[in-house]
Design a binder for these strands. Structure first.
Length: 260
DNA sequence: CGTGTTGTTCAGTT
DNA sequence: TAACTGAACAACAC
């Protein structure tokens, strides 16, 4: 379930191998994950082009070339790999960019993500739709601005890609636990101190998770609760509970994150 | 073969 | 009219 930290790890993986690689051809065993063009047109547009440095905004990845940009989204189950020409492809490698020294492969088990071809920044904006600033770039002041005037709950706002890009279910739960805020708290009811803690928690969760390549599953993290039958809060020792917020499975500590 | 999974989209509501 | 909510959808593992 890639969120911002996972996609940043993907970006670094691609950045380590792909820049400078000329594309020879593109094969797509599952053509339908190529979303806004045909496999043939994608191959024609990229053949002979050279990959540059990849960028990321939220959960979107942009594999630049000296021509068009390949836009990647990983849905819930996707990930990219770099592999030698001869190494066996995985069953769910849906699109393969065959380069000079290896292959960039997009594994999409559930086909929820996809590949788009973009000629310029305008194309990219049309593909991604409106996105708020990347969650990693949000300052304390900007967080206040982004949340100002919102009527709903804090978890809903954090997960809204138009508010900020990159946070989804697990990062939202983890951030709210670190900030000691109940996921159902109304944005309008949060104090300046609440927002201070929320910003510090978002920063902490994103930076530590990026360093780890994903949200750590260790006992000191709320996400650990998703691994075990019944987790206890690493801060207070109380039981972590599971419920549904915005029709998504949500974990929190009732003692540390009091209900609104 | 039914259930669980979760990012996104969309229909409907406030 | 923007913001909000919840249901539907995607495809597969188990």
């Amino acid at each position: 379930m890639p969120e911002l930290p996972d996609v940043e790890a993907f970006r670094r993986r691609i950045a380590a191998h792909v820049p400078g690689q000329p594309v020879q051809r593109v094969t797509a065993p599952d053509a339908d994950v190529v979303r806004n063009t045909s496999v043939q047109a994608l191959g024609r547009a990229l053949a002979g082009r050279t990959f540059g440095h990849p960028d990321r905004h939220g959960k979107w990845l942009f594999a630049r070339t000296d021509g068009p940009t390949v836009v990647l989204h990983f849905g819930m189950t996707g990930y990219p790999t770099w592999a030698g020409h001869g190494s066996p492809r995985h069953r769910y490698d849906r699109v393969v960019f065959v380069c000079r020294d290896g292959e960039l492969r997009l594994n999409l088990m559930r086909k929820l993500g996809g590949v788009w071809l973009a000629g310029d920044e305008e194309d990219i904006a049309a593909i991604t739709g409106p996105l708020g600033p990347d969650a990693r770039e949000v300052s304390r002041g900007r967080l206040g601005e982004l949340l100002a005037g919102r009527r709903g709950g804090i978890k809903s706002a954090l997960m809204n890609q138009k508010v900020m890009a990159g946070v989804r279910n697990e990062v939202a739960d983890e951030t709210l636990w670190h900030a000691r805020l109940h996921p159902g708290r109304k944005v309008a009811d949060l104090t300046g101190e609440d927002l201070d803690r929320l910003h510090a928690a978002l920063d902490h969760v994103l930076e530590r998770s990026i360093a780890h390549g994903r949200i750590p599953r260790d006992p000191g993290w709320l996400t650990h609760a998703r691994e075990v039958e019944q987790a206890t809060c690493a801060r207070c020792g109380g039981d972590i509970v599971k419920g549904t917020v915005n029709s998504r499975p949500t974990y929190w500590c009732p003692a540390c994150q009091p209900a609104p």
